[in-house]
Each structure stands twice: as structure tokens, then as C-alpha cells.
């Protein structure tokens, strides 16, 4: 496609380039700015007097002797025990991803291999469930959790997040399994395998690309959830995001916004790494729904 007709005139090229540059600024600048600012004191991060203070860190230098300080991180991680919340998030994410992939794979596989009419209705039900905002369900959970004394614990949150995850997982894996030829497991069944054996020996070895992509989105849902986890976890078991919200309530009055800033940067870092390594899978996951859809 390098014919003369396709070569773009210079002004158009410049316009396109600057548009992309502006978008890149919009997308990346806030993160870089906050990362840079998280190593400053509050007076520099919110620099009323002179905005260049945020770059040079004048007040930080006056307070700590160097233009960069880890005080915010120290305060958040050590004093406020943010490490505890990071571990909680880790536990929740690992268990949510593993459980929801295990049961979602079985369900999605069954949906893709059964030609009966109820498959359609199950998928529609899943679509409706996907559309319902999770926070509307919380007032349904609370009385039951209080009654059985299950409120506040990590396993409760894990089970709830797994369930909320299922509709999306099912849709995604259903369309992925549809793309695996039915002949594969049919021939295994002809050779005398049961359906489950066919699944285990033939489908499991080839399903990993789809499962990894789905797993990424399950992870993101569990990691990013605020509405549900903040309502059903007690103070000791809070994950990162509700804890950041709690920082806003308590530390802003004490002038320790920098704790929250450090916590925000700490919570963003894993996602940054995730995109770095799984960019291709995330893109394919986002488009899978669309192409099918």
C-alpha cells in the first residue's frame, strides 16, 4: 500500500502525529506525574506557590535534605500497614482467578458443545447478570452474611467475586471454545473417551491461550473492585482499593495525603507490569467479544 495515491500530504501527517502525541500525553502524563510526585512532600505535590516546585522538589529538599523522599511509601507501608492490604489483594486475586477459571472453563466448554435450546437462555441470563451493577446485589448479601457470621472475611469476598465474574468468564470462554473444532473431542469420544476424558485429554492441552486471556480479565475485576469489597470486608481484611478509599477519609485530615499517593502508585505498579507483559492478550480479549458480538 505504498502507492502514490496513499502517500499522505505533509500537513495531514503532522496533524495525525500531533493528535497521537496529544493522546499519549493525556494517557501517560497523569501516571508519570503522580509517580514523580509520590517521592515529594505534600507541599511540593500540591504546589500552590509555584508549580515548578513539584518538579524540583524545593520543599522536599528543605524537609528531608534530598529532592526525593520515600517518606510517603514508608508512612503507607510501615505506619499504616498497607503491606497487609497488598497481601490481602494478592490472596483474593489468586483465589478468584483460579476458582473462576476452573468452574468457568467447565461451564463455557459445556455451553459450546451442547446444541440445545437452553444454552441460548443460559447465555442470555449471563448477559443480564453481566449488565447488573454488582453494588445493587450487596444489600442482598449483607443480611445473610450477618446471619451466618460470614461478613468481613476474605473467603466470603472471594466467593462473591467469583460469582460476579462468572457471566463474563462464561461468555468469553464460550466463544473461545466455539473456535476449537468440535471434531477434536468428537474423535476422542469415538475412540471411547467419556465427555470428561475428552475434555481433559484433548481440550485442556489446547485451551491455554483463551484461558490466560480470560484469566487476565478475571484478575482485573478482582483487583479493581471497590464497591463490593469495601462493603463486605472488615477493616483487618481490607484489600488495597478500599484501603486507599479509607486513607482519603482519615489521612487527608492529618495532612498525610502523601500516604494515599504512595498507596495509589503502589496499586498501579502491578497493573503497569501486567500490561507490559500481556498487552497482546488484553487486546485480543477486548476484541474477541466485539468480533463475535
Amino acid at each position: 500500500m505504498s502507492s502514490a495515491a496513499n502517500r499522505k500530504p505533509l500537513p495531514l501527517k503532522i496533524a495525525l502525529w500531533s493528535f497521537v502525541a496529544i493522546w499519549l500525553m493525556m494517557a501517560a502524563f497523569p501516571f508519570l506525574w503522580t509517580l514523580w510526585g509520590s517521592f515529594k512532600v505534600e507541599l511540593d505535590f500540591f504546589s500552590i506557590a509555584d508549580w515548578t516546585n513539584a518538579l524540583t522538589g524545593d520543599n522536599t529538599e528543605r524537609t528531608h535534605g534530598t529532592p526525593f523522599t520515600g517518606a510517603g511509601y514508608e508512612g503507607a507501608w510501615v505506619k499504616e500497614g498497607f503491606l497487609r492490604n497488598i497481601i490481602n489483594t494478592g490472596i483474593v486475586c489468586i483465589f478468584v482467578v483460579c476458582t473462576s477459571l476452573t468452574i468457568g472453563t467447565l461451564g463455557g466448554y459445556a455451553l459450546s458443545r451442547s446444541g440445545f435450546k437452553y444454552v441460548f437462555w443460559l447465555l442470555i441470563a449471563a448477559l443480564i447478570f453481566r449488565a447488573i451493577p454488582p453494588i445493587t446485589l450487596v444489600s442482598g448479601y449483607l443480611p445473610v452474611f450477618f446471619q451466618y457470621n460470614a461478613w468481613g472475611y476474605l473467603p466470603t469476598a472471594i466467593i462473591v467475586l467469583v460469582a460476579i465474574n462468572q457471566p463474563f468468564t462464561l461468555w468469553m470462554l464460550h466463544s473461545f471454545f466455539e473456535s476449537i473444532p468440535k471434531e477434536l473431542d468428537e474423535s476422542a469420544k469415538v475412540d471411547g473417551c467419556t465427555q470428561f476424558q475428552a475434555f481433559r485429554r484433548v481440550i485442556i492441552p489446547v485451551m491455554w491461550p483463551g484461558v490466560i486471556t480470560t484469566g487476565l480479565f478475571s484478575f482485573l475485576l478482582a483487583y479493581n473492585d471497590f464497591a463490593v469489597t469495601s462493603m463486605i470486608l472488615n477493616e483487618d481484611n481490607r484489600t488495597m482499593v478500599p484501603q486507599i478509599a479509607a486513607f482519603l477519609g482519615t489521612t487527608q485530615t492529618e495532612g498525610n495525603v502523601m500516604f494515599a499517593v504512595a498507596a495509589v502508585v503502589s496499586a498501579t505498579a502491578p497493573l503497569f507490569v501486567l500490561v507490559l507483559f500481556f498487552q497482546r492478550q488484553i487486546v485480543s480479549g477486548l476484541t474477541a467479544g466485539a468480533v463475535k458480538g
Partner: peptide, 22 residues
């Protein structure tokens, strides 16, 4: 460009809104 474009979407909504708000 795709890498940096994904960041605003992938970031935790509460965290993203705080970053912009600050």
C-alpha cells in the same frame, strides 16, 4: 502507543480518578 493507551482503561477506577483529581 497501544501500551500507553491501555493504561487509563486498565487502571483501577478509583485509583485513576484519584490520579486525575489530584
Amino acid at each position: 502507543v497501544i501500551f500507553f493507551s491501555l493504561l487509563p482503561m486498565i487502571v483501577t477506577p478509583l485509583v485513576g480518578s484519584l490520579i486525575l483529581f489530584w
